[in-house]
Design a protein around this nucleic acid. Structure first.
Lengths: 244, 244
DNA sequence: ATTTAGTAAACTGTTGACAATCTTCTGTAG
DNA sequence: CTACAGAAGATTGTCAACAGTTTACTAAAT
């Protein structure tokens, strides 16, 4: 669904976005892929050398990513890949829950039978994957399920905000620590969302969608805290000292 | 609440944000004040000359504002002050309703008695203004009421997203066409939000907050359509042709 | 040995100039 | 009189160099 622009500027993007845009996508890729690790400084010179362009476009791209929330700007020191602490993750989850709920709410009042069936098929696919305990199969369908709902709302601003949030969430790379019964739990909630949409009641659709993400948050934190027995995430994990 | 930076770079901002930030705020001011009219092109040269800086910082500022949604970028043509059609306004209202609802929902589970009282005082102030039919007195308190709720959630991303949305909404300058009975209606809804928060029930607080904005949307469109008898807003009002 | 002052390198912030693109104006042909 | 082609002007996109700040290193003093 989300377009993953390859490392090499893919023809069209170069004509469309004219360097600055290409650079932006490339830096985004470097961040989300983890090549630029969390908390590290993004060296303008290094990037411009690596991509064979001047520093101007690199700076523009960085400013855009700062606005998007993936980078953090400290004047005269540079931009740093944003570090997410527990509070940040909680914020992202809460906001994502709200937007997901809104999407469900908006869609409930105008979804068609054909669209319902399309979603039902996705839920069935996820059921299959959940029964097999196959996270690798489950995950992309899960993504598609939520993306379809989002797109069907037709609210471009909602879509943009949500996708930005997903990217920010990826900074906190903690996938794969989901238990196999969590898959079944998660898909049961998908079924609830589907039923709510089918009922055409915005309030119910909101509730079902909102709760799904909030439960996801709880599942994630539970799994995470179990993994790091020593203690939960530090509240302030050594930001590159913003102020002396 | 929101810091209105004056036209002249106000000392601190200059040290803090180093030109690019100052320029960004100044362009933002030009847009929101209407000096740069909706749909018009933002000439990099003109801005840089006017502010006495080079084009670099101006470009950076513009890219940031594009990301924020106030400007629209067309490659090799420049950036244009975003034009809002009816669909855009509807999108903004819907998203704003969702975020407002989320704020209410999040706050309901943790609001203190003192905070409730603070909000109650604001509602009382608005009652007074509504009785007098004084929109000029009503408006800033209304703004504060919603801003307080937003801030008390403590979710910085929610706050940022909401405030960006408010700025975008200001592009569609249609204040003052509110009838005096709409004030009373609006404040009745404020009272409902307050009661919902007081009940500490997130679901009810969501509903009350969400509905308030949706009713605001209806009030606005009703007033607007009455004003422009000829017909509602055009669906695509002569964008500077994005594609030939 | 540790701390502190001083110096050099690295990096960001900013600028002015050059190249590519688009827009407008003018003149000519139909 | 209208439509089209071409040139001139304006504007964006990009670059390389300069200035100011921060960081890292070195050496002397306690």
């Amino acid at each position: 669904m989300t377009d993953l622009t390859a490392a090499i500027p893919t023809i069209a993007q170069l004509r469309e976005n004219s360097l600055s845009g290409v650079v932006r996508h490339e830096i985004e890729r470097l961040i989300l892929s983890g090549e630029l690790p969390t908390g590290s400084r993004v060296n303008e010179n290094a990037i411009s050398l690596r991509l064979g362009v001047s520093r101007g476009p690199v700076r523009e791209a960085c400013r855009a990513l700062v606005e998007l929330g993936l980078l953090r700007l400290i004047p005269n020191r540079g931009v740093f890949v944003r570090r997410m602490d527990r509070h940040d993750v909680e914020e992202v989850y809460d906001l994502r829950a709200g937007l997901t709920g809104l999407a469900g709410s908006l869609l409930a009042s105008k979804i068609t039978d054909a669209e319902i069936e399309r979603l039902r098929a996705l839920v069935a696919d996820m059921d299959e994957a959940a029964d097999a305990g196959d996270f690798r199969q489950f995950y992309p369908v899960n993504l598609e399920f939520h993306d379809v709902i989002l797109q069907l709302t037709g609210n471009s601003r909602l879509i943009k905000n949500y996708q930005a949030l997903v990217k920010e969430f990826q900074l906190f790379r903690t996938h794969g620590l989901v238990q196999s019964d969590a898959l079944k739990e998660s898909n049961a909630e998908h079924r609830a969302i589907l039923a709510a949409l089918d009922s055409r009641d915005p309030a119910i659709a909101y509730q079902a969608s909102f709760r799904h993400v909030q439960h996801g948050k709880q599942r994630m934190f539970a799994a995470f805290d179990k993994l790091t027995q020593a203690g939960p995430l530090p509240a302030e994990p050594a930001e590159p000292r913003p102020i002396e």
